[in-house]
Amino acid sequence: MRRGTNVALTKEIPGLTRVVVAVRLATSEEVLARSLVVAAILCDEGGRALGDDHFVFFNQLADAGRSVVRLDVRSAAPGPEEQVEVDLDRVPEDVRRVVFVAYVNGGTAQRRTLSQLREATVRVLQQEDDAELVRSENLVPGFGPETGVVLCELYRHRGDWKFRVVGQGYDDGMVGMAADHGITL
């Protein structure tokens, strides 16, 4: 799937209730690899987090209702993926979208950007059997000085869940994404 495209997941696959969003960020730079973070933000209709407890990342592995849970890094061909499981039926009704982001965590001696990645792709898997439902294009060719990116989102549309590839970069990384989504850092 290309940036900006979407697919109607639950309309196309009736009975789909649990998915895994798998993010692959591949780089040959060890320092960059260690500082990459994948997170999920549970947002209202306006794209704002319902609260800081609706931000799922390495220090908060699930939202309060455990509808969105960060899994251990899994090995997948041709390399590791960060994975987040979403129980679509348990996502609170006031959550209209689950936004998936990646960013370079601060503290590196040199300026690191997402353009240094070789690959940035997202896959949506059926939780029961890991069957791949959709895969994004490699988003890296669109990156420049960005240190953060909104990768994709799962969102409600007329009673169904849809998936959209976003690929919107942020030069100011998590600080900019937090401001846009109402998260306190």
Rank of each mutant, 00 (worst) to 15 (best):
I13N: 06
S35Q: 08
H54R: 08
V140M: 10
P141T: 11
P141H: 12
D52W: 06
Q116F: 01
A120H: 13
E128P: 00
E119I: 15
P14M: 05
A39C: 05
T108R: 10
Q126A: 13
F100Q: 03
E137K: 02
G144I: 05
D44C: 05
L114Q: 11
L42E: 08
D63I: 01
C43I: 06
V91G: 10
A22G: 03
L36S: 05
R74H: 13
E30I: 04
L114H: 13
L25Y: 01
R96S: 13
A76P: 02
R111S: 14
N59A: 12
L61K: 06
A102W: 09
V56Q: 00
V37F: 03
F57R: 01
Y103G: 06
V86C: 10
D130A: 15
V104C: 08
T121N: 15
A40W: 00
F100T: 02
K11W: 06
R111D: 13
G65I: 03
E132T: 15
E82Q: 12
G15Q: 08
V20K: 00
R112L: 15
V124L: 00
V86T: 11
S67K: 00
Q60P: 08
E12L: 13
G15I: 12
V98W: 02
A64I: 12
V124H: 00
P78V: 07
T121P: 14
L61G: 04
D94M: 11
R24K: 04
A26H: 03
P92Y: 10
L50D: 05
D94K: 13
V73R: 10
D53I: 04
D72M: 05
D89K: 04
